[in-house]
Write a protein that binds this DNA or RNA. Structure first.
Lengths: 212, 212
DNA sequence: AAAATATAGATAACAAAATATCTATACATA
DNA sequence: TATGTATAGATATTTTGTTATCTATATTTT
């Protein structure tokens, strides 16, 4: 066993459930609850108590036997695990419908993300701030990334433009891309890409619906 | 073995990958390609050829040995499987940033979804069509659902309002809800709910980023 | 015509994730 | 004080999903 305690790696599914737990714990916290059991959480989530228990144990949530998980402490370990207790400066490329919607969402600040700039190629978009975020021309990407030392990119642009912009981004040293364009981006191996595909969710819904 | 051939059930993960395959097959189709191998598809997707092969086999995609999967036939079986070859009339509740973004997206017609109405409680939203879709007051939900015989709801409203609206929807006979509000809706067991949580993807990104 | 090759098809092995079961303990109740 | 109970903690089992391997067969190459 090495110095940094070797914990069993946490599953993707667990990670994806963490924000949900966090939301519920915030809620309980505002009501002054100090302990919440996996049974209570199950009632709020449609998840089985045992799934919740294992998830929380895997991130090292503090607990009390027979009583439940400690609210404040669990919030802390989840935020810590996700890195949501300090802000990362991010920017968005593509101020279309979805881009504007994401810019309009203030909740990212609770999720470790601070969108400080946006980019678009369309003249009518450039120079018009959205929800207080300045919109620059895409030609300025490299210079502003460097000036502001930005590390995370949110891509909400048309599929056809995505790879080109991505190449610019990686050349500028971007290390994380949250990609909403329906393309599989090719990036150097040290760049993290998280792809969102809204059609996947719809496919799931349709499949469930058909099997009824 | 029953009359309706009992096929092995298709995994959720496979279902979520189907739209991606579909997109690529459409592409090849427009270029006139008749056969695509799993190796070719792997180059486009970052998935392993064997994953693709199994996915396509599981939906019964037609193929030719040594050559690949038949483009037209595979498109057909995937569309068939997802029910995306005929349109379901849907509506959206909550014309905020995200709701407007979804209304602005015309691609749903290729995904079996036709959004024919939207609802909001805010007077300044009601009566102003978005991308050609009429916006009604939420009070009219039940009557319009019945009049238009709507079956699928898209919820893009604040968490606090979601359960109330859902109760109205289920009472009106809605059978499928695509939920973008960060709440776990309580619904009768015959109602299908597909929950989208944008924070899950962000959590995944942050976790990957931290482990670098 | 024969040999090499790329692929679907089938099956097997492996890994990840979900679920079940059992134990120990703090607390509540009688 | 003794007994019952709800829960975390630990471990085992089952299910689901991924990856590997082997076979058969069309196609291409020699």
């Amino acid at each position: 066993m090495s110095l940094s305690t070797r914990r069993k790696s946490i599953s993707v599914q667990t990670i994806r459930r963490l924000p949900q737990y966090l939301r519920i714990f915030y809620n309980f916290h505002t009501y002054g609850r100090e302990l919440v059991s996996s049974t209570d959480l199950a009632a709020e989530t449609h998840l089985l108590p045992i799934v919740i228990k294992k998830d929380l144990q895997s991130v090292g949530a503090p607990s009390k036997r027979r009583a439940g998980f400690k609210v404040a402490g669990t919030i802390h370990v989840i935020e810590q695990f996700l890195g949501w207790n300090n802000l990362n400066k991010a920017f968005l490329v593509g101020v279309g419908h979805l881009g504007a919607a994401l810019l309009g969402f203030d909740g990212f600040k609770n999720h470790g993300l601070e969108i400080v700039a946006a980019f678009d190629t369309r003249p009518e978009k450039v120079g018009v701030p959205v929800n207080g975020v300045p919109v620059y021309h895409t030609a300025q990407l490299t210079s502003i990334i460097e000036k502001e030392n930005l590390k995370i990119a949110v891509l909400t642009l048309p599929a056809a433009a995505a790879q080109g912009v991505t190449d610019t981004l990686t050349a500028a040293g971007i290390k994380a891309i949250w990609n909403f364009a329906p393309v599989n981006l090719k990036v150097p191996s040290d760049v993290v890409v998280q792809k969102e595909d809204i059609a996947s969710g719809l496919a799931e819904l349709c499949a469930k619906l058909k099997s009824r």
